[in-house]
Amino acid sequence: MAGKVLVITSGKGGVGKTTTTANLGTGLALLGKRVCLIDADIGLRNLDVVMGLENRIVYDLVDVVEGNCKLRNALIKDKRCENLFLLPAAQTREKDAVSPEQMKELCDSLKEDFDYVIVDSPAGIEHGFRNAIAGADEAIIVTTPEVSAVRDADRIIGMLEAHDLSTPKLIINRIRPDMVRRGDMMDIDDMIEILAIKLLGVVPDDQDVIVATNRGEPVVFDRRTRSGEAYHNIVRRIEGEEVPLLQLDQEGFVERLKRLLNLDQKRRKAE
């Protein structure tokens, strides 16, 4: 079985790479796929915390690479999904403890056993980033609707091209439909126009994500949340299904009222 290695990357920090990795991995596992997550952020590991698996770590990525343990001994089985595994990062080491060649070897051997290997890249464009993309077959770029995040995403796309990962896909995270509507936030079309890559999905800014993350259970478990639904749709798109984008600007009565009032105010101002 030869699976696919996906790398989740962004350039800028704090846009939601780790949350995305956790949710896509869990989502794919819920569809019955065998999934392995790799935390490539050596020295600043987070993915285990977001997955709620921190206290089960015995061996980590660096142990595997240095031959201190067998690969399968370092893999941690998820609490809820039988077919989801995590290879955690080392916390007490630094990025240069692993080389891109070693990462490639690791990814190659993991994809023999799994349908999907998802690598969570560290922020930045240095050694850690090069490690993360070394074994990847495809890249997924996460960005938020901020000029700086989009700029960094653009830089990353350029660097991925230089590493033969020329058709990355885009996830726009933390979009706020109300702000987009008011013209206070970059809209999806603007970002697609600049980055010119295929859109994989849009995840709304949602408090449930923070709650779920702090509790150590990815929000994709809860399909009632809007972000959970969005991640679920992205997962289905990764699996090759055609799923229409989530209708984000479903406004409630109160919002509509507010908007109408607002418009009214603006019009009055214009006059």
């Binding site: 700029r151 653009d154 830089r155 796309i157 350029g158 660097m159 091209e161 010119a196």
Partner: peptide, 8 residues
């Protein structure tokens, strides 16, 4: 024949 991206 390509797009020139940030940093390039």
């Amino acid at each position: 024949k390509r797009t020139i991206r940030s940093g390039q």
